[in-house]
Structure formats: structure tokens, C-alpha cells
Design a protein around this nucleic acid. Structure first.
Lengths: 239, 239
DNA sequence: CGCGACATTGACGACGTTCAACCCGGGTGG
DNA sequence: CCACCCGGGTTGAACGTCGTCAATGTCGCG
């Protein structure tokens, strides 16, 4: 637990050109013309977060639309009893909160930087009126939300019918496709993705290690046989 | 298994006034003026489905926006291995597919009438351009999708940390709030809501019966002590 | 050097799925 | 009118998975 100050974001300047470039790589804005991208980029400002810093908390009303510019952010949900699942791992170009800007009301989710991260913010109202002016943004958002719903429902079904090891394989394969061979996650973080405990994850990883599919070290997993991994976990998750 | 013809919807005429009244009671259209309601009602047409009939199938491209006018529809998701969870129980005024009209692409869900049902359809493109013209519709849709995501994530957490009986209590309480004292569902349908098997549901119901919270008969559950039920399942689901 | 976060492993027990048998009631066809 | 069948309910028993608790190891940082 570091000092509170270290957890809050520090304002940081980012070039207009850099913001434009970011938004050109943001799926939500796909299909927009250059002028529109520039318009929304003009309203954006950035903050830097240290590893472990909180971008926003649970039960906090939504004030901004957030997009990750650099680093990696974990968006997760925590129950009263302390179980936590991670709902989204966002890196460059990925938004953290698609629903909040429209309703303004607080939701169950909180966002935490997993490494040194820069997040770009747009005022909720500004983003809202921009989105409403630009239909394609709306359609993009709704289609992303659709994927999110499908993904969550898929996870429910997996919880019902797939054993821990199978779910972990799916998680690893998904992360492999998104981040490459070397995955910098702790067993606990993987457990929050697979919907299980640290210990069960560790045991399953032990078995995968024996099968020569992965190697693992402290806070790090390497996929040694991607092909086999792909074979074993036919589907992929959405994170 | 009845004849195939019986499973498909039969076109049926509904008064314009009746369609207007329906859409006035449809949350998606909340905030619209009368003229706008009339415009969308003018584009709608209805079909009747027998109990067990399919409104739409999994993996089928989306052609229409659907709203239930009468009866009850179960929207559910089925895995390869046959596990099924029900994602939504829609009665009068509830839409069946919010995402489909925007993307057009097929999704994981299928919809089945649980009783004699009338569903109103609007052409996907018509609905889409109508929604885009009327911001409030968009905002309503996104906020519903947000609830759906929260609900699905909540179910994942419940699968992790709550035993079957607890989940069933939540299901029963939710249904009680939506449909009243007498719930016309089979144990299998309840199981699909609680994310478990028929047998486990039955066993849990046996315990609730002994505790005097419910009574149950063939295809029917009655809540005898709603207060106790509410107490035992603090939160509620979203169906 | 020592603490804290992370990894690892064993033992144990609870919960829930699965399989199987059985009952019951109502509808259907002979 | 009766026999049958099917969908649904109910219960028992066996089994396996996984979560929990606990002990121990180890790495890296302050």
C-alpha cells in the first residue's frame, strides 16, 4: 500500500498529434473522419498512473470517458465478500467505460493500472454529445457492448461445464493472442480471469508445465507451445 | 415435438392503437414524444407463437427488432455440449434483441415462447435509423445493455462464491418481484436461471419447502413467505 | 537483513454433478 | 375405456472437483 498521492493520476501533457494518433487507433472511433477525430482529440487530456494506481473506483459516479494511451489497465468487479473477477484488460486504444458516459451513474467496476500507465480522459458530457452526433460511434459502442455480454454469458457457461484447467487454457490462449508469448501476470491475476482461486490456478499451471505447454516464473508465464494451447482451448475469451 | 409449422410464428393483425400502447410501455422508447411513438408503431407488425415456438434461432442473422406484446419469451444461450442458461425472460413491453439490430450479425442467443405469445417486429434497418434519429432511444439501449453486463458479471461472481441454494433464492426472489406469487416454471427452467442442474434445483427446493418458504407443484412454484425470501436473498437479478 | 508478495504443495472436506431408479399425472391412440 | 408413454418430480448413492487451510519456500526490494 503506497501513499495515497501515488495512487492518484498525475496530469501530464500529451501532444495534440499524439492524441489524434491514439484515437485513430481506438476501435470506438473507427469510421470517423479526420476532422471528427481531431474534434474529440481536442477535448481530451491525459493523466499518468503508477503501477497499482486507481483510475476509478467502484460506486463512483462517472465523470469521464477513459481510453488507455500507454500501459495496461485491469477493469474488475468485486463482490461484498471479496471475490474479484477481471472483466477487461485494456491496453493502448481501449476504452475503460463505455456505459458510464451515457448514464452517469456509478457501476460495479473499478479500474487499476497494472503497470506505469497513461490514460486519456474526455468529459462525460462532451463525449456524450460527440457520440450522439456521430452515429458510427454509437454503433461501435453497442457492438462492443454486445461482445461484452456474449463474453460474460460465455464465462457463465464455462463456469458451469468446464473444469478449472480448461478455463485457464482459454485464458492463457486469449492472453497469448493479445499480448504474445510472454505474459506478465501473477497466478492471482490469472485466477481472477479464470474465475477460480490462486491455488487451483497454480495446480493447473503445474500440470500444464509438466505437459510442456508453458513455463512460468515469478509473475510471468511463457507459452512454449502455442499450437498445442490453441488446440486445447478451441474458443477464445473477450477481454 | 409438434409439427414444424406450429413452431413458426403466424402473422396476426394488431390495431395501430394497440401497437402504440405497447410501445408506450416499452422502456426502450421511454422519453419519446407521441409522434415518434406513432412513427415506430407504424412500422411494426405482429406474429403469434404457440407455446414452445421459436422466435429466432442461434447463429441466425438479425433481421428484426422484437418486442413482446403478450405472453412470455425465454431468451437463452446454449453451448456446444448442451448446457443452457437463460439470459432474459421477457414479457409485455420487453425487447428480445437490443444488439442485433445494430450489428446485423448473428449472436449466441435464441428465443422461445414459454406460453402463447405475440411478438411485434420492426425491420432492422427501420429500427436502426429510427434509433439513430432519436437519441433517447440510444441512451436507453445503452443503459439496458449496461445492466445486462452488470447482471451477467454478477452471475459469474455468484457462481464462484454462492452455493446453489443461495442462487436459487435469488432467482426465486427476482421472479417473485417480476411475476408475483405464483411462478409457472419447471425446475429445469429454474435451473437454467440459477446456473445448475435440475436435480440440484429440486433438492434445494425441497429444503425451501421444508422451511415453509415455498410450496411447489407440477410446473409451478408458489412463494408463501415473500418476506423471508427477500431477507435470504438480499440482492436481485436482472432478467 | 527482513519483510512482503508470490509460488508451491499436501491434506481434507464439502458441495454438486451424474447416473439410476422410481413415481405420478395427463394426454393420446387403439 | 384402458393402456401406454412422456414430461416432470423426487430421491439415493457414488464420485470427483475444487475450495479451504496451513505450512513452507523463495525472490526482490527497501
Amino acid at each position: 500500500m503506497s501513499l495515497q498521492g501515488a495512487n492518484l493520476g498525475k496530469p501530464i501533457n500529451i501532444d495534440f498529434a499524439e492524441r489524434v494518433d491514439l484515437f485513430k487507433n481506438t476501435f470506438v472511433f473507427e469510421g470517423l473522419g479526420d476532422d471528427d477525430i481531431k474534434e474529440i482529440a481536442g477535448m481530451a487530456f491525459a493523466k499518468r498512473f503508477a503501477k497499482g494506481g486507481s483510475i476509478f473506483y467502484q460506486d463512483e459516479p462517472c465523470e469521464f470517458f477513459h481510453v488507455v494511451a500507454r500501459g495496461l489497465v485491469k477493469v474488475s468487479i468485486c463482490s461484498f465478500s471479496g471475490s474479484r473477477i477481471t472483466y477487461l484488460l485494456a491496453d493502448r486504444g481501449e476504452p475503460l467505460n463505455l456505459v458510464g458516459p451515457f448514464t452517469g451513474s456509478p457501476r460495479f467496476i473499478s479500474a487499476e493500472a497494472l503497470e506505469e500507465t497513461i490514460v486519456v480522459h474526455v468529459n462525460r458530457e462532451d463525449f456524450l454529445s460527440f457520440a450522439i452526433k456521430n452515429h458510427v460511434v454509437i454503433i461501435n459502442i453497442i457492438s462492443i457492448l454486445g461482445s461484452a455480454i456474449d463474453s460474460a454469458n460465455g464465462r457463465i457457461i464455462d463456469m458451469i461445464e468446464k473444469p478449472v484447467e480448461q478455463r485457464l487454457l482459454k485464458v492463457l490462449y486469449t492472453l497469448y493472442e493479445k499480448f504474445g508469448n510472454t505474459l506478465k501476470f501473477t497466478s492471482n491475476e490469472l485466477a481472477e480471469l479464470a474465475g477460480t482461486t490462486t491455488e487451483s490456478t497454480l495446480r493447473a499451471m503445474g500440470r500444464l508445465r509438466k505437459r510442456g505447454i508453458i513455463t512460468s516464473g515469478r509473475g510471468e508465464v511463457s507459452i512454449t507451445r502455442p499450437a498445442k494451447l490453441k488446440l486445447l482451448s478451441d474458443e477464445t475469451l473477450w477481454v
